[in-house]
């Protein structure tokens, strides 16, 4: 009896190892660094999390079907640039379209998300109907989108945004930035899709066993296309948010974010072998990532050494996570 209790405690520690270590690190940082655990700093961390979470939630859908999406980062850059060109002030000297009135912010967002969705559905089409492995298909789309961004902007950095656009980052509701609200709403919608719609259930089924899904009458191909389309629309939104936050954009915006998003998802418990993962997994994963970065920064760890720390966390987190499923046999 005593032993099983010990065993249970051990299992708990291992199953939640990353989160526990995170908590310890946050508390330690809070004690040693003065202004880490202040509401303004925590809000700042949440703000950093917001766009990252939107990306991770998009990529989570792909990962749950045992896929991935390497085009996310470039898609974000594209979205940021398009938003920039459409939403510059008339009086800004380096305006990209000097004679064009700035567009309505929401209209611009919808246009950007729609274009990204088209890109995503093309990727999805190749994955679902032409059986191109997701890794390769999204790699191809990554290159294409980057090329389009470069041609569209001529590699010029963009700035001088209208206040209604930058207001997304500076303005707040109930003391919480609009960007954070957007992330919360996206998380809620994603939760709804994952749990309350056929599409979500089909997604888990395809990730769990694609052959069985086909036999059970799941529209496997269509579902895959929708997943990549939806994910791309979310990258569009994330790029839009990042542009607002930075007040500017270049084609390099979002570069490498896809890797961090995939890592965050897996740290939170989305299984790369498919079929497992929740919205909370993405939230936890992104939180771990951002808290880690912030803590290390506050502890004065060299910026380059932070990369090493992040790599180590990924190694440990995924080994522990995989262990849960392997040990079950």
């Amino acid at each position: 009896m005593e032993k099983t209790k010990q065993q249970k405690a051990k299992d708990f520690l291992i199953n939640n190892g990353v989160i526990i270590v995170m908590f310890v690190l946050v508390i330690y940082t809070g004690i040693t660094a003065d202004n880490f655990l202040t509401s303004s700093n925590l809000l700042n961390i949440l703000m950093n999390m917001s766009a990252r979470l939107v990306i991770a939630l998009g990529i989570a859908g792909c990962v749950i079907t045992a896929g991935c999406d390497l085009s996310a980062g470039r898609m974000i850059g594209f979205a940021g640039c398009v938003a920039g060109t459409l939403l510059q002030r008339m009086d800004y000297s380096g305006k990209f379209f000097p004679d064009m009135q700035p567009m309505n912010v929401f209209l611009a967002l919808i246009i950007i998300m729609a274009i990204c969705a088209v890109f995503g559905s093309i990727t999805g089409f190749f994955i679902a109907y032409l059986n191109v492995p997701p890794f390769i298909a999204t790699l191809a789309m990554m290159e294409i989108v980057y090329g389009i961004s470069m041609i569209y902007t001529g590699a010029t950095p963009l700035g001088g945004y209208v206040s209604s656009y930058t207001g997304l980052a500076t303005g707040s509701f109930l003391g919480i930035s609009y960007l954070i609200w957007i992330a919360i709403i996206v998380a809620a919608i994603t939760w709804f899709i994952f749990n309350m719609t056929r599409h979500g259930k089909y997604m888990y089924a395809i990730g769990g066993n694609p052959q069985a899904a086909e036999v059970a009458g799941v529209p496997v191909k269509l579902t895959l296309v929708l997943i990549y389309m939806k994910a791309a629309a979310m990258y569009g939104l994330a790029g839009f948010m990042l542009g607002a936050k930075a007040g500017g954009a270049s084609v390099q915006l979002g570069y490498g974010y896809e890797m961090e998003a995939i890592a965050a998802c897996t740290i939170g418990g989305v299984s790369v072998t498919g079929g497992r993962g929740k919205v909370s997994s993405a939230v936890i994963g992104v939180a771990v990532f951002e808290l880690l970065k912030a803590s290390l920064q506050y502890l004065g760890v060299d910026a380059n050494a932070q990369y090493i720390a992040i790599g180590i966390v990924i190694f440990i987190a995924i080994s522990l996570d995989i262990r849960k499923y392997v040990a079950k046999k």
Binding site: R198, A205, G208, N209, A213, G275, Y325
Partner: peptide, 30 residues
């Protein structure tokens, strides 16, 4: 195992996967 069950899903999801079409509210909510 090969093309019958979804090992990592619940009993409910294993039964439900073929019949979600039949159980919808407002056309899209399960």
């Amino acid at each position: 195992r090969g093309n019958g069950i979804f090992g990592c899903l619940s009993i409910k999801d294993n039964v439900g996967v073929s019949v979600y079409n039949k159980f919808m509210k407002a056309g899209f909510i399960l």
